[in-house]
């Protein structure tokens, strides 16, 4: 127990970190082999991901058990808060790499390919007929007569004031519902807490469902794919990683919902809820950036 060790809590030796490491190692080997064209690699990747999920379940079971046993003091709570905050900051920087790439491509490299500024010679010697427009429907190599392009010409892009707007409303609403759930939790009202959480999970998964529909539409009708030149590259990289984060976030909220139903949280003591809520708001804010810079302007 924490009190038998001075004022501190130190966990016992644990097998979960090494299980997690081996699971990720297996996933990476499988993923690498799969990309190199080996079917066995796909199998290993599946096995590895299964092992990662097993690790998460086991590790978090231990943490939840310790939390319910009352082993965590104020100091552990603050450590978790710092940990979650800086983890979210690292995620912000991960998305910053892709937003940075989008900025560089739109503001610098595509205009240079079109002959602006420093790109004058590139334009003249390589692709004199290339026109720099955004969204970039035709790649530079499509502008050369008699050369088969490696990329697909985009027929149309997804308009901002269509499904993406609906998705924006869904995600913003989910930010409201999770806040309402938090207010209910702080008053110890378990029923509204669970209902608002359920609403949040539902909004999250409906968002993902619409996003999948949008991808299918883009691939089948618009020829907007990952192979459609740099517009498709940035579009799918940003929205894809965001969609993955929404899926993760909604799953995390689902876990919190189950724990709320079991009565794991008290009005004062519920960091797991708050950490997941922070994460959800982060996913929300990333979407706003996406909506403005990828879909809208």
């Amino acid at each position: 127990m924490s009190d038998s060790h001075g004022a501190y809590f130190i966990p016992e030796p644990s097998r979960w970190p090494i299980v997690g490491t081996l699971a990720l190692f297996l996933s990476f080997i499988g993923g690498g082999m799969m990309l190199n064209g080996s079917g066995f690699g796909t199998f290993l990747l599946g096995l590895g991901i299964g092992a990662v999920i097993y690790m998460f379940c086991g590790w978090f079971s231990d943490v939840i058990g310790e939390s319910l046993a009352g082993s965590y003091n104020k100091q552990v709570d603050v450590s978790f808060r710092w940990g979650m905050s800086w983890f979210i900051f690292s995620e912000v920087m991960f998305f910053a790499a892709f937003f940075g790439a989008l900025y560089y491509i739109r503001v610098l490299s595509v205009p240079w390919l079109g002959g602006e500024g420093a790109g004058f010679a590139t334009h003249m010697f390589l692709w004199p007929d290339f026109e720099a427009v955004w969204p970039l429907m035709m790649t530079p190599d499509m502008s050369l007569a008699g050369v088969e392009s490696k990329f697909m010409e985009i027929k149309d892009v997804i308009p901002a004031f269509d499904v993406p707007l609906v998705n924006t409303i869904l995600l913003l609403s989910s930010g409201v519902t999770i806040t309402l759930a938090h207010h209910a939790l702080k008053k110890d009202h378990r029923a509204p807490l669970c209902w608002w959480l359920a609403a949040t999970v539902l909004l999250g998964f409906v968002f993902v469902y619409f996003q999948i529909g949008e991808y299918a539409h883009a691939y089948h009708e618009l020829d907007l794919t990952m192979k459609s030149g740099v517009y498709g590259s940035t579009f799918f990289m940003l929205t894809g990683f965001h969609g993955f984060h929404v899926t993760m976030g909604a799953t995390m909220i689902l876990v919190i919902l189950v724990r709320s139903m079991k009565g794991h949280f008290s009005a004062k003591d519920h960091f797991a809820f708050e950490g997941v809520a922070w994460y959800w708001h982060f996913v929300d804010v990333v979407w706003l950036g996406l909506y403005v810079f990828v879909y809208w302007i």
């Binding site: 910053a96 790499a97 490696k150 192979k227 590259s233």
Partner: peptide, 29 residues
């Protein structure tokens, strides 16, 4: 470190998923 992770992820998709982040012929750089 996350920025490096993003950068090498773009390398991975350029090689295996047909993206054009670093290919000027596709509008990248």
């Amino acid at each position: 470190m996350p920025v490096l992770a993003g950068g090498v992820t773009m390398l991975l998709t350029d090689r295996f998923f047909g993206t054009a982040f670093f290919d000027a012929a596709g509008g990248g750089d």
